[in-house]
């Protein structure tokens, strides 16, 4: 792993059994991500974006090669160790906000901290801080069904970043949002990326999202087609 690199993908291949044969989702991938990157995996369906995010997010392990995340080899982690890595250091944002419907906004965000056994007083502070970041502190007591799409996704962002993870993985975060909400959540994420130094990794085919990324990795048929460094420093609507 290079200096400052928090994710190192070395010769990673991932195959899935299909019937009596195999499907190769990733072919000999080599990538490095530095701390504080705002990068995206782009490509058509079946190009391997989600598989790669799965491996980086310790939800799956490579068939061949090595994926090092925060110095830990994903294929060597037990289920419990993978869960601990996600619990402490990785936040997830999904295409659908996936908030727990019976809990309030506050409780949805708090849940990530409950898993870490953080004391109540500290939890309260961290949750309100996270809701402040996404501009939803006033909606802490609302249930998810009272939120708009954009607000729901912002709560999901708050839940992902409340524990101040090193990496946030966002799978098509704008898929269900209109242009205005897409802009708003990207702006929020960008600010968090700058202020907290959190590394954001996206999977997207949304050009609105691509326009805000510092680095775009084009995948096709499980291989890296192009690794494009853009260096966009400011967001434009």
């Amino acid at each position: 792993m290079k200096n400052g690199s928090i994710i190192s993908i070395k010769n990673v291949t991932k195959r899935f059994p299909v019937g009596e044969g195999e499907f190769t989702a990733l072919k000999n991938i080599n990538l490095e991500f530095q701390s504080g990157e705002f990068a995206g995996l782009v490509g058509p369906s079946g190009s391997g974006k989600t598989t790669l995010l799965n491996i980086i997010g310790s939800l799956d392990s490579p068939t061949e090669g090595e994926a090092l995340v925060l110095g830990k080899s994903i294929s060597k982690l037990s289920h419990k160790e993978s869960a601990l890595l996600r619990n402490k250091h990785i936040g997830f944002i999904f295409q659908v906000y996936n908030l727990l419907p019976v809990y309030t906004v506050y409780e949805n965000v708090e849940f990530a901290l409950l898993l870490q056994n953080i004391p109540k007083v500290q939890r309260q502070k961290m949750v309100m801080e996270a809701l402040d970041w996404v501009g939803l502190a006033s909606m802490a007591d609302k249930k998810p069904d009272k939120l708009s799409g954009g607000e729901g996704q912002r709560v999901a962002i708050a839940r992902a970043i409340v524990k101040k993870p090193v990496i946030v993985i966002a799978d098509e975060p704008s898929a269900n949002l209109d242009a205005e909400n897409t802009y708003a959540i990207l702006k929020t994420m960008r600010e968090l990326n700058k202020n907290l130094g959190t590394t954001f990794l996206f999977s997207t085919h949304d050009e609105k999202v691509m326009g805000h990324l510092d680095r775009i990795i084009h995948l096709r048929d499980g291989a890296v087609e192009e690794d494009e460094i853009i260096n966009v420093k400011t967001l434009t609507k």
């Binding site: 997010g57 939800l59 289920h79 419990k80 869960a83 601990l84 890595l85 996600r86 619990n87 402490k88 990785i90 997830f92 999904f94 996936n98 727990l100 849940f111 990530a112 898993l115 839940r159």
Partner: peptide, 16 residues
């Protein structure tokens, strides 16, 4: 199903 999925993703172990 969805709730357990979220919880797994957030880092709650299956045993937990």
């Amino acid at each position: 199903y969805q709730e357990f999925g979220i919880r797994l993703a957030l880092g709650e172990a299956k045993g937990t």
